[in-house]
Simulated scan of single mutants.
Amino acid sequence: MAATVFTDLQQIKDSVGKHLGHSEWLEITQDRINRFADATGDHQWIHVDVDKAKDGPFGAPIAHGYLTLALSNLFLPQIVEVRNISMGVNYGVDKVRFPAPVVVGSRVRGGAEIAAVTDITGGIQVTIRITIEIDGAAKPACVIDSITRYLA
């Protein structure tokens, strides 16, 4: 079950600025990185060449930034659930940043807060700031201002 459950759109509006909770931790494995490289065609050595990456700037392979971004789709349903709506539509993102690399073997999780809510025809548009944290790191791996439309 999600950390935060909303049963109507007004509850979302009333929660601007509220932290919604965190997802479970997820270990970033070399296998996950390799499968992402295969799916996207991005086989840059910093991600997939374990031996060469040991001598690189991070001492090991790192996850693709877009892999880290894509994990928001895994984490967000663990954090928030919206009930009693006809649908939720992923509308896009306003801003994505990658402050710190995710080294293979690291654990990451998502946290979320409602940054803004605006009324739209038939529902609301919600900006959720998703922060993907690295266990033990000072900086997050990724910060996403994700936009979702919830329709009544």
Rank of each mutant, 00 (worst) to 15 (best):
K52H: 08
L20M: 04
R32D: 06
L20T: 02
D135A: 07
L67K: 09
A100H: 09
P99W: 04
E81Q: 08
L67C: 00
V89Q: 11
G88L: 05
I62G: 07
I28M: 12
D135L: 10
P101T: 01
P140Q: 03
D42S: 13
V117D: 12
I46Q: 15
G92A: 14
D145G: 02
S15L: 06
E133I: 03
V50A: 05
V50Y: 13
D38H: 11
N90M: 09
L76E: 10
P77T: 14
R107S: 14
T29C: 07
V103K: 15
K139N: 08
V108L: 09
V102M: 04
G17M: 08
A39W: 12
L74H: 15
E113C: 05
R32M: 14
E81C: 09
E133D: 10
H47A: 05
A116F: 01
K95C: 00
K95V: 00
N90K: 15
T131W: 07
K13P: 09
N73C: 08
E24T: 13
G65I: 02
I144D: 15
V108S: 04
T4Q: 03
P140A: 06
C142K: 06
A60G: 11
V96T: 13
H47D: 00
I46E: 10
A53F: 10
V126R: 10
V96G: 03
R129A: 06
V93S: 15
I79R: 00
I128K: 14
Q30H: 09
V104E: 03
I130F: 07
E24M: 04
T118R: 02
P57G: 07
R107H: 14
T68H: 08
I132V: 15
A60T: 06
A137L: 05
A60W: 14
N90L: 01
Q78P: 04
N84W: 06
I33L: 08
I62S: 13
G21P: 01
V108P: 10
G21K: 04
L9M: 06
I79K: 03
I85F: 01
K13S: 02
P57A: 12
E81S: 13
F36P: 00
C142T: 11
D55Y: 04
T7V: 11
H43M: 12
A63G: 08
W45I: 03
G92K: 11
S72I: 02
N90T: 06
A152K: 12
G59A: 02
A53H: 09
I12R: 07
V96F: 08
D38S: 11
E81I: 03
S23C: 09
L26A: 11
A3L: 00
G105R: 07
L67W: 05
E133R: 08
P99K: 12
D51I: 12
V103Y: 14
V96C: 04
I120G: 11
K18W: 10
D31G: 07
E24D: 15
A138P: 09
I144K: 09
A37L: 15
I128A: 13
G122S: 03
V96H: 07
G88E: 01
L74A: 14
V16G: 06
T40D: 06
